[in-house]
Design a protein around this nucleic acid. Structure first.
Length: 475
DNA sequence: TGAAATGTTGGGGCG
DNA sequence: ACGCCCCAACATTTC
């Protein structure tokens, strides 16, 4: 029997995997393939931490294939020649994969369909409602989140694909050269951070634990600046973002788990809390379809007029922001969390993004790139959407004059300073009264920098810069 | 998924 | 008893 190929990309799991399931249903032996595409292993948005998390995920996937008498087949190089070679040597007759909606992937897959002679079966697996499915009355993609979400919630949701994977349905890979799954060392990466355990079983454990308790308290606890949800016994957020990033969990699994929890909720507040968490799934799908329909946002503002703002070229200040040395404790704590964990709490992401774009008046793309270099959950659509939202240049963005006050945000979301003290040990002994603004102390800790800029001054500067652009547009 | 500036109201101190 | 001022508390407007 001729084999078929399932090409894993951002769907590193065996359960509820639509393309994989369809490949298995052909009854032909399935070759489980992963390709290291050099184009995705370089560039300014590349991250060694994310690569590490992915490699761990590939090892987990490989392990989970062993009971089925196969392994993950590894190939290197540009996908089209790599696939051609494999189709030749294995005599494969079809290629299955799940769609990836980012600009690079869309281009790659378009070329693929023109270049390969075998049958190609793409599936919409990564979202509950793929781009193009949620459209306004005039058949246009929504650019306002609340309208998108209304339609998104109305749509019937696809079920989880359940069922046991039939044994002996995978290709044994006999006769195929299969190199080991590479290590970071093979990519000349000598140093990176520790990352959480990867793989679909870890992802499902996290989801199950979260829907037992955390999801019911989500709306009241999610804004608390948590130090590390990956090691917390009672995390206030699901900590699933890196698993979503690599498809170690499916949105169907997450959605239906949440809906089951909702049915078991005992109070209206608990049901509302579940709804708030589900709306985060909608945000993920909203931004994915934004990048798909408006690919220019990848490197330029959704609202083109904001390209004319006189942003500041300040590489030294950008560096200080990245290193967590701005002198604003909440900003610095958050950046050090990012540097240490490859992850940052969402509220903290908004605070540091507001600080970079509004207080330092640095173009949002610098922040987008800096985040992508660090985040284990770094996704081009979600990260870009978040940055443009904060900068006020995006779809449905907050108006430019909404400028976070880092001190007030700090007081609101880290009232006792525990988050700051954990990530900034040099401020451990600062009294709570001064923890959000240590420069107001008589003798501030000497090792900690003075504020990089005065917030009140910076706020006025940004209002002027954005207003200047608005004026120009009118005249 | 803001914050600051400005406006309004009303109680209390005081001459 | 009255007017005046101050200012906290809250509301509204503005950026």
């Amino acid at each position: 029997m001729t084999p078929v190929i399932h090409w894993f990309r951002r769907d590193l799991r065996l359960t509820d995997n639509l393309a994989l399931r369809a490949a298995l249903k052909t009854g032909q032996p399935v070759v489980p393939l992963f390709i290291f595409d050099p184009a995705l292993l370089k560039g300014e948005r590349f991250s060694t931490a994310r690569l590490k998390f992915m490699l761990d995920g590939l090892r987990a996937l490989d392990e989970s294939l062993k009971p089925f008498g196969t392994r993950l087949l590894i190939r290197y190089g540009s996908p089209i020649p790599a696939l051609r070679e494999l189709i030749d040597t294995a005599g494969a007759s079809a290629l299955f994969y799940n769609r990836d909606y980012s600009p690079y992937a869309v281009r790659r897959d378009d070329q693929l369909r023109e270049s390969l002679s075998v049958e190609i079966h793409p599936f919409d697996d990564a979202l509950l409602h793929p781009p193009g499915q949620i459209l306004s009355g005039s058949n246009a993609p929504y650019t306002v989140y609340t309208l998108f979400k209304r339609r998104w919630l109305e749509q019937p949701k696809p079920a989880v694909e359940s069922g046991v994977i039939p044994n002996k349905q995978f290709h044994s890979l006999e006769g195929l050269d299969n190199p080991c799954i590479p290590t970071l060392h093979d990519f000349s990466v000598t140093e990176t951070i520790d990352t959480p355990a990867a793989g679909e079983s870890t992802a499902r454990q996290r989801l199950e634990r979260f829907i037992e308790r955390g999801i019911f308290l989500y709306s009241q606890r999610r804004d608390r600046l948590a130090i590390n949800p990956f090691t917390d016994d009672d995390p206030t957020t699901s900590a699933l973002s890196p698993y979503f990033r690599f498809g170690m969990i499916s949105p169907r699994q997450a959605y239906h788990a949440a809906m089951n929890a909702r049915r078991e909720a005992s109070t209206e507040a608990e049901r509302e809390s579940v709804d708030v968490w589900i709306s985060e799934l909608a945000w993920r799908e909203f931004y994915t379809q934004i990048l798909y329909h408006f690919p220019h946002v990848h490197n330029t503002s959704f609202r083109p007029e904001y390209e004319q703002v006189e942003y500041r070229h300040a590489p030294d200040e950008l560096k200080r922001w990245q290193n967590g040395e701005t002198g604003y404790p909440i900003v610095d704590a958050a950046m050090r969390q990012l540097n240490a964990l490859g992850w940052m709490h969402n509220r903290a992401r908004m605070i540091v993004a507001s600080f970079l774009t509004k207080d330092l008046l640095i173009y949002w793309r610098e922040g987008d790139v800096a985040f992508m270099q660090r985040l284990i959950d770094g996704d081009p659509a979600a990260n870009n959407g978040g940055w443009q939202w904060s900068a006020g240049t995006g779809t449905d963005a907050q108006p430019y004059f909404r400028i976070f006050n880092p001190i007030l945000q700090s007081q609101k979301f880290d009232p006792d300073g525990a988050y700051i003290r954990h990530w900034l040990p040099e401020l451990r002994d600062v009294p709570t009264k001064f923890i959000h603004a240590p420069w107001e102390m008589e003798t501030p800790p000497a090792q900690y920098p003075r504020p990089i800029v005065d917030h009140a001054f910076a706020r006025e500067r940004t209002l002027r810069a954005f207003k200047a652009v608005k004026q120009e547009k009118i005249s």
